[in-house]
Amino acid sequence: MPPLALALWLFNVVIDTGGQLAFKAAAGHPQAGEGLARWRHMARRPWLWIGIGCYVAEFLAWIAFLSLVPLSEGVLLGSINIVALMLAGRLLFGEKLTRLRVIGMLLVSVGVAVVGAGA
């Protein structure tokens, strides 16, 4: 893989994981309230906007990355994001990694990679 593609891929993993974690931080806030009040609470705090910013940056980085590597290779490498988020959820939100959850996440991850490899 060319160095630029490798850099773009690493950037994508970081920004995708970071964006999802920001969304979780926004959505899971315990004092957010219900219904419309919950959305107002989220909109007034930075997490939601950080998440949206990451999405936009990721969209551009992903298009640039796919212009350098074949789509199948791209999808294959994208499946790493599932594992990255599993570990980050454990570290930052204390999410329990039960055996069944780990098996489930790894199966999905391998499945996405296999679909990508078969494209």
């Binding site: 988020l85 980050a88 996440m105």
Partner: peptide
């Protein structure tokens, strides 16, 4: 997605 994440853990939900 934002409604699901209110309660769903991010790791399994993303998968």
């Amino acid at each position: 997605w934002m409604s699901l994440l209110e309660h769903a853990p991010i790791g399994p939900a993303f998968a």
